[in-house]
Each structure stands twice: as C-alpha cells, then as structure tokens.
C-alpha cells in the first residue's frame, strides 16, 4: 500500500464523509472547544459522564479528513468506557502515532482506531489525528481551551 492510501484508509474516508456522533449533546456534563491554531481546525466535544462512565459523546466543528474521522472514531470508541479506560486508549493511540516502536499491546487495544497507523508517515498530520483526543483530555480535566500546539 502506498503511504497515501495507508493514510486515507477506507474507514477514515467513510468517517470523514459521514461522521458518527456529529452534533452537540443537549445536557452535557463536560464540554470543551479544541483548535489547531496553525491550521484553523476547530472542534467542540460534549460528553455525558455518569458514575465515571462515558455514556454519551458528540463532536462538532470543522477540520480535515484526518481530524474529522479521528473525532468520529473516537466518539464511537468511547461510549461505555470508564474515564480510566478512555485515558488508556489515548495513551495507546499516541503510542501508535508517535513512538518509534509502537507496542503490539497498544495496537491490539485500539481496534478500529488502528486505522490511523498510516499517520506515522506524515508527521505534520499527527496533530490532526490527536486534536479530538487532546480536547477530550481537556474536557475531562476541565482545562482551558484545548490546543495541540
């Protein structure tokens, strides 16, 4: 597979064209805006967390295919997870995208999120794939506006 088709895998193109969980929750327990100031991508993440479990999550905003598909697949992966599990997932996701030798354990844990493995070959695009996750982290820890810069 070429670098490009490895980056834009069908699953990513599909989630870009029809993002899941798009919109905003009516009564979120957590809500955060995130942005990539250098490219202008922006995202709003809203979550309902009950008893430490993410029962619902939605995103809205505008961005490139990688950032949109990442947000879409992230929301799908998060539903039903505990906050601890969500954080472990982000750690594995970061590992997949940025470490020299991603551990096989991370890849196993990631499921569909492993579709982003191709981003490794495009260092300038890693921040697109992690924007939703950084926003999640900021939402859960009530940081100020999330930013990948």
């Amino acid at each position: 597979m070429s670098d490009l088709s490895n980056l834009y895998q069908d699953l990513i193109l599909d989630h870009n064209a029809s993002p899941r969980n798009f919109g905003e929750l009516d009564c979120p327990t957590h809500r955060k805006e995130g942005s990539n100031p250098l490219c202008g991508d922006n995202l709003v993440l809203s979550l309902r967390v009950e008893d430490d479990i993410i029962v619902d999550v939605r995103f809205s905003g505008s961005g490139c295919a990688i950032s949109k598909a990442s947000a879409s697949l992230m929301t799908a992966a998060l539903k039903g997870k505990t906050i601890g599990e969500a954080e472990a997932l982000f750690a594995s996701f970061k590992d997949l995208l940025t470490s020299l030798e991603p551990s096989p354990a991370s890849a196993n844990q990631l499921g569909k999120l492993a579709a982003f493995s191709g981003v490794r070959q495009f260092p300038s695009r890693v921040k697109c794939a992690t924007l939703a996750w950084h926003t999640l982290e900021a939402a859960l820890h009530a940081n100020d506006v999330a930013s990948t810069e």
Partner: peptide, 23 residues
C-alpha cells in the same frame, strides 16, 4: 468541495507539489 485543504496539500505533496493550506 469534499476535500479539506490540508488533505489536498498532503496528497499533492506526494506528487512532488508544494502548496500551502490553512488560513
């Protein structure tokens, strides 16, 4: 339409073409 400027820039870069994307 349907292709974000960043994706465009990444794809044409693989063809050797350097353009800019963003604001």
């Amino acid at each position: 339409d349907g292709v974000h400027p960043h994706d465009l820039a990444t794809i044409v870069d693989r063809e050797g073409v350097a353009i800019r994307a963003g604001h």
